[in-house]
Design a protein around this nucleic acid. Structure first.
Lengths: 217, 217
DNA sequence: ATACTAAATGAATACTCATTCAGTACTCGT
DNA sequence: ACGAGTACTGAATGAGTATTCATTTAGTAT
């Protein structure tokens, strides 16, 4: 009898889950086009081909809907990033190359995703929850970049012994900042953005600093 | 008689100019605390100690008010930057140091200013005017950083002849990105942000890349 | 003092938008 | 094909907001 209840529940969940997913996707699209202040339940409902009441039925509050949209985008970023780093094993060279590829992957850095990300940054100071979610991602990603730079610097110094004084933290910040800057470009240019040139720039950065590990283009 | 009229006019203008300035300042403060979507004419009026009607009297539309606030912040950035670069003469070393100092000057990078800046970035995709204003600033600032890096690389290569392959554009992007990243930190940390450490990082970046021109800390 | 003008007020207006809920349309096991 | 129950609808509600404008206040010249 419990099993029956469960089954009934599950069937309905599968159905409503599709609607829920459609609403979430629509929310992201609407935020990307209209920003947070222009995002209304009506617009989301229209984009999801659903009645406004349905949106609230699934998310209770508009704010919960927005938070769910942010969560979806953040989780997608994190998963893509983690997959890429796993692929790289522990190798810092491969890892940094993978980070470039992930950050500029057309799916990950789709203009809509990027727009959503910045939309929440813009509201982050007023809404603690947004700030926490976004900040957590940025801190995490920055820490791993930091680590890879430290490893590479140690490696190159022990190798050639050219006596350079490379500051890992500063150079890692520069790397992350460079990628961040590319995202801003995506925000500005949208579909017209040149990903190939961007990747070339990012690799050129690494090649400039670690000529032994990264070939110049 | 024209002189008399002028005088009368001028007195009144001075009066209303004070009010107008108060409203603008209040707007920036409110945006910083409540973000764009939470900024209401009521809140601005209260912060400026003025009636809501007065706000509209001076700016006609709420959107014009917001645009004026963005303009004020952008112009402040530009003026501080230009003054610093003038001070540096044409010397790229001094210029880059000046750029660091300006970007992390407590007045320029006041958390309120930074918050306003990001608030508009968040809405930039939905509002062409915001995007144009912000994009113009970023493009301009990036171009000058680019130029300084080119000069420095030419200088160091002709000097030591260590045969490094430094990519000016990539490293300049890293530099701008690093500073940008610091601003995000200001957004997150507010008053608690450690400007001294940030400047040290930025200088360490330059010292890592141009050891002949910048002393390591 | 008085008259005149510009600046400021704030209650009233005319929206917009999130949220509710009574009712309808589905879905699915039987 | 049916009935039980869920997912969904969308018009109605009301809270909140930008903007208006008739009136008051403040500043200046005569």
């Amino acid at each position: 009898m419990l099993a029956v209840a469960d089954l009934a529940q599950r069937r309905n969940e599968a159905l409503s889950a599709r609607t829920r997913a459609a609403i979430l996707e629509a929310t992201i699209a609407v935020i990307a086009r209209h920003s947070l202040s222009g995002t209304t339940v009506q617009l989301v409902a229209e984009a999801a081909k659903v009645a406004p009441g349905t949106v609230i039925l699934h998310f209770q509050k508009k704010d919960a809907l927005l938070m769910a949209a942010l969560e979806k985008v953040a989780v997608e970023f994190e998963q893509a990033r983690r997959a890429a780093l796993d692929q790289a094993g522990g190798d810092p060279v491969k890892a940094l190359e993978a980070i470039i590829d992930v950050n500029l992957d057309p799916k990950v850095s789709d203009p809509a995703n990027v727009a959503v990300w910045y939309a929440f940054w813009g509201e982050a100071r007023a809404r603690k929850l947004y700030l926490e979610r976004i900040g957590a991602y940025d801190t995490m990603s920055q820490e791993s970049v930091d680590r890879f730079f430290k490893e590479l610097i140690a490696r190159e110094e022990s190798g050639g012994g050219k006596q350079r004084h490379l500051n890992a933290q500063a150079l890692a910040l520069g790397f992350s900042g460079l990628l961040e800057w590319q995202w801003q470009e995506i925000l500005v240019s949208g579909r017209a953005y040149d990903r190939v040139a961007a990747k070339r720039n990012a690799r050129a950065y690494l090649a400039s600093i670690f000529p032994d590990s990264f070939a110049p283009d």
